[in-house]
């Protein structure tokens, strides 16, 4: 499992060449609340950053059909762009290996919200309202068998979704050794 301890916690080192520097150069301006409201839209797995609003898979269904299905297929598996929903009943090992989507691969549900909000629809990025994003997130989680059609996704519920594949992720183990890993 990835924890913050997976990477060395840095000491706030002072570079030798900075010893003669002023405490601050004073270039730049304080960040304003308006700037952060506009820019700071990221969402962490613990839910930090999730906005007000909510949505359900049922509400997401028509939005998906109108704004997403053209690229991701009517049920999220047909493409032509990235597959979003698990294809069930695959037997061919090669096909199974490629069947890595939200429901069986993604470790956190918050990522679905975060990514749709920032980048989708591909041809109209940044055009969705927060309730729409909650609804689409719910729709995709439901289509992947993670939640029920009527489960309400909001700032409280979304971080609590347990994604099935979360335990598979491990931190990088290559650098302690010259061995091939």
């Amino acid at each position: 499992l990835i924890t913050s301890g997976s990477f060395p916690r840095p000491v706030n080192q002072t570079r030798p060449d900075t010893l003669a520097w002023p405490k601050t150069f004073g270039f730049g301006k304080p960040v304003t609340t308006q700037q952060l409201t506009r820019l700071d839209t990221d969402v962490r797995p613990d839910g930090k950053g999730l906005p007000a609003g909510s949505g359900t898979a049922r509400q997401g269904k028509p939005i998906y059909a109108a704004k997403c299905a053209s690229c991701h297929g009517p049920t999220g598996v047909e493409g032509p762009n990235d597959q979003l929903v698990i294809i069930k009943g695959l037997t061919d090992p090669a096909a199974k290996a490629k069947n890595k989507v939200i429901g069986n691969y993604w470790p956190y549900a918050t990522t679905v919200f975060d990514y749709i909000k920032r980048a989708m629809p591909f041809n109209q990025p940044g055009s969705l309202s927060d309730p729409e994003v909650y609804s689409l997130t719910a729709f995709l989680l439901h289509a992947n068998g993670i939640i029920k059609e009527t489960d309400v996704m909001n700032a409280q519920t979304l971080p609590n979704i347990q994604m099935p594949n979360r335990g598979s992720f491990v931190p990088d183990d290559r650098l302690s050794t010259p061995a091939v890993r």
Partner: peptide
């Protein structure tokens, strides 16, 4: 990503 490219 054929459709995306068509749009692009």
């Amino acid at each position: 990503a054929t459709a995306a490219v068509v749009l692009a």
